[in-house]
């Protein structure tokens, strides 16, 4: 588990590089929410395996840097309590706890969760009202709000060039800006056998395929596959969230189905849905389908249902 934390280090580093001290504060708050809840409710049953830290870090990476810290803490606590502990703890949950926390925050505080910083005067300045009093609204100066590449495309029909998408010099959540670093972390994890490469592979493939097809049909209305792949939380979601072993299918075939489903849902929500970004919802929806996928993709047991090929 700690190796997952280690592989997240460059992503965390990049988020601090891009968003300054706000990023660090938000990450600390979300981790504190997750870990305190695990300790508080599960008590001695809490495991020292770092899974609480992963939940906190992943949640933090999906949040905008300017969010009040109390919201980040609340998200971590909610995800841990209702996404994990209520199912019986590590290995038993159905939904990815970090994403459940994030979905809860998104539904609870839609404004705060969609307020992105444009740029800051210096690296040291905060990117929003991080220190808003608990339960109170943040004071967000209008000048600070920018937009994400997906938001720009969806609501204003503006594209963003590939270079900025790759390097991460765009608006967005902490961990969803630099695609390259996330891919590197994913490659490291895949090589060490900590993630099933089939999931990101099938997500990328289905997104590229669907987006490519639509782009061919109408290049004006539908963005190209490269933009779709590198914008928003797709990289972070595909590499770190969807591959959470507990909430993904157990069999290889199941993983392909799971990934393809996520990719298709992402494209559907981004293009025909009301929200600019759908990675989080796509993964949660497919999480819900995992038990069903596991049932359906159970491989044929050796020596059973032999066709005509037998004997």
């Amino acid at each position: 588990m700690w190796s997952v934390v280690a592989s997240l280090a460059p992503v965390v580093g990049a988020s601090i590089w891009f968003f300054g001290p706000s990023a660090l504060l938000v990450l600390i708050a979300s981790c504190a929410g997750a870990i305190c809840t695990e300790r508080g409710i599960a008590g001695t049953r809490a495991l020292r395996d770092g899974s609480g830290t992963i939940t906190g870090l992943l949640l933090g990476l999906t949040l905008p840097p300017g969010i009040p810290l109390w919201m980040a803490f609340l998200g971590g606590a909610f995800g841990m309590a209702f996404g994990k502990l209520v199912f019986g703890g590590l290995g038993q949950n159905v939904f990815n706890p970090a994403l459940l926390g994030r979905a809860f925050l998104q539904a609870a505080f839609p404004v705060a969760l969609t307020t992105w910083p444009a740029s800051a005067s210096s690296w040291w300045s905060l990117r929003g009202d991080n220190f808003a009093l608990p339960l109170m609204s943040p004071q967000v100066p209008d000048a600070l709000t920018g937009a994400t590449p997906l938001g720009l495309f969806k609501f204003e029909g503006q594209g963003t060039d590939l270079g900025s998408l790759l390097v991460g010099s765009t608006g967005g959540s902490l961990g969803e800006t630099c695609g390259l670093i996330i891919l590197l972390g994913g490659a490291y994890l895949a090589l060490r056998g900590h993630l099933n490469w089939r999931i990101p592979a099938s997500i990328f493939a289905s997104v590229a395929l669907l987006a490519g097809l639509l782009h061919l049909i109408d290049a004006e209305q539908y963005p190209g596959p490269v933009f779709m792949l590198f914008s928003g939380g797709l990289m972070l979601g595909a590499v770190y969230m969807a591959t959470d072993m507990v909430t993904s299918p157990v069999s290889g075939l199941g993983c392909w189905v799971f990934g393809a489903g996520i990719g298709a849902l992402v494209v559907i929500i981004r293009i025909w849905g009301g929200l600019p970004e759908g990675v989080m919802y796509s993964i949660l929806l497919m999480n819900a389908l995992v038990p069903f996928i596991n049932r359906v993709t159970q491989p044929r047991v050796f020596g059973t249902n032999l066709g005509s090929s037998a004997s």
Partner: peptide, 19 residues
């Protein structure tokens, strides 16, 4: 022994394709 995290390695190992 740790809790199962449903990684699926056992499915990939089982030579008779059980779960």
């Amino acid at each position: 022994t740790h809790p199962c995290i449903r990684c699926g390695h056992c499915l990939d190992a089982c030579p008779i394709f059980l779960n």
